[in-house]
């Protein structure tokens, strides 16, 4: 996937380069017509240089990205999850981290995170202020595939029912929109993330436009209103069950230790 070209940058060098490219093209043609292979070669090489320069000028990033924060991996993930406030698939964590915290995580880095956290909790329970834990499925109270949550959240938030993947997606969109609205100068990538999400929410954005936070919030809230009650009932019911049936490890990392070790 290509980088988006930013527009409105340095007009003059581009103009000059384009002029040079046109001129070189003509020279290549002339030399070719004259059968002068050496000159053809020379002009072609110059042409290639000019075009490379043209491409480079076009692609020139407006400013180097701020240097990545030196936070440890788990804290970067925690930061993203705190912003979102709902169980989240690792890919979205990576996007949020990139859009708001200038991080460069990769999904594969998150694969072993949950297992490490579980091991730590088992050896010295509650020794950390929070653990990155699993979200539990409402029916089986088993860890849900690919989702990460934070241990300090209420149990009902950490449980996902059939409707939760949608409600959590909508909530995440709202949280992201709110965060953008709070920021003084939200970056391009933050808007891109919001726009991508908004495109899948009815009435949140028009085809090719950039998403507007207030409108995304309104649209997401509208759809959320349709699902919220049923979703919360299912989650609350399951949370009550989990409290009764599971010990602390189970509540954080799910019933069935085998599967917890396997999940990512």
């Amino acid at each position: 996937m290509g980088r988006l070209l930013s527009c409105g940058i340095v007009e003059d060098p581009l103009d000059a380069l384009e002029e040079r490219i046109t001129k070189l093209r003509a020279q290549v043609r002339e030399a070719k017509a004259a059968g002068d292979h050496a000159r053809v070669k020379l002009f072609r090489a110059q042409l290639a240089d000019a075009e490379r320069a043209w491409n480079a000028a076009l692609e020139e990033a407006p400013a180097p990205p701020p240097s990545p924060p030196l936070l440890p991996l788990r804290e970067q993930v925690h930061q993203a999850l705190t912003l979102l406030g709902v169980p989240t698939p690792s890919r979205l964590i990576v996007s949020v981290n990139e859009a708001f915290f200038a991080g460069h995580l990769s999904s594969s880095q998150l694969t072993s995170l949950r297992r490490d956290e579980e091991r730590s909790f088992r050896t010295t329970p509650y020794s950390r202020p929070y653990y990155l834990c699993a979200a539990l499925t409402a029916d089986l109270l088993a860890p849900a595939r690919g989702l990460l949550a934070v241990s300090t959240w209420p149990l009902a938030t950490r449980i996902v029912g059939p409707l939760s993947s949608r409600t959590d997606f909508l909530t995440a969109a709202i949280r992201i929109a709110e965060h953008i609205a709070r920021l003084e100068a939200p970056g391009e990538s933050a808007y891109r993330l919001l726009t991508r999400m908004a495109q899948n929410i009815p009435g949140a954005v028009d085809d090719f436009d950039q998403a507007v936070p207030a409108r995304v919030i309104a649209a997401a809230e509208a759809e959320l209103a349709l699902h919220r009650e049923a979703d919360q009932t299912q989650r609350a019911e399951a949370a009550a069950r989990a409290t009764k049936q599971l010990d602390a490890v189970g509540q954080f990392f799910g019933a069935g230790l085998k599967s917890a070790a396997r999940t990512a």
């Binding site: 499925t137 595939r145 059939p162 993947s165 949608r166 349709l226 599967s259 396997r262």
Partner: peptide
């Protein structure tokens, strides 16, 4: 319809 968003991942029971 909008309310129909229920999603179940069979993979939650393991491999």
């Amino acid at each position: 319809s909008l309310p129909e968003v229920s999603y179940d991942d069979v993979n939650n029971v393991g491999d």
